[in-house]
């Protein structure tokens, strides 16, 4: 995953877009957490683009839930975009199904077959 300084950012509507790369494991998410907290401190909504990330599993699902809770508590939204089909499949395997994903701001779930994976 990119470091805080290198995390590409942009805007999707009002939300700050954060692109996540690499494996979405606990250590990478731990590194990414300050970035997301900084967005929260700036009182902005955020969109996590995970189209170039892989290895979504329990750690990622939990992270999104936690982040979603924090953003919601502040009246902001957190969305997740670009989830690949493999990642969606992995999340489903731990019981994080499509319905749950939609409730937690996933734009697509499961991703269309053949979604690109780095």
């Amino acid at each position: 995953m990119e470091s805080d300084e290198d995390t590409p950012t942009g805007f999707i509507e009002d939300a700050l877009c954060l692109e996540m790369e690499g494996e979405l494991d606990h250590s990478a998410l731990g590194e990414f957490k300050p970035t997301l907290l900084a967005v929260l401190e700036a009182d902005r909504s955020a969109t996590l683009d995970v189209s170039r990330a892989w290895g979504a599993g329990a750690a990622f699902a939990q992270f999104v839930c936690a982040a979603h809770r924090s953003f919601a508590a502040q009246g902001r939204s957190l969305r997740v975009s670009g989830l690949g089909s493999d990642a969606a499949e992995s999340l489903e395997a731990i019981g994080f199904d499509g319905e749950t994903a939609r409730q937690f701001g996933f734009d697509t779930f499961p991703a269309p077959p053949g979604a690109p994976r780095p």
Binding site: A59, Q62, F63, T100
Partner: peptide, 24 residues
């Protein structure tokens, strides 16, 4: 049949990503 429970997940500020607050 697997049911995931995320109710125990804390807010991001309190989350250590290596800890598991999920329940099944």
């Amino acid at each position: 049949s697997i049911t995931l429970d995320v109710s125990g997940v804390p807010a991001l500020e309190d989350l250590d990503p290596s800890d598991c607050h999920l329940r099944w």
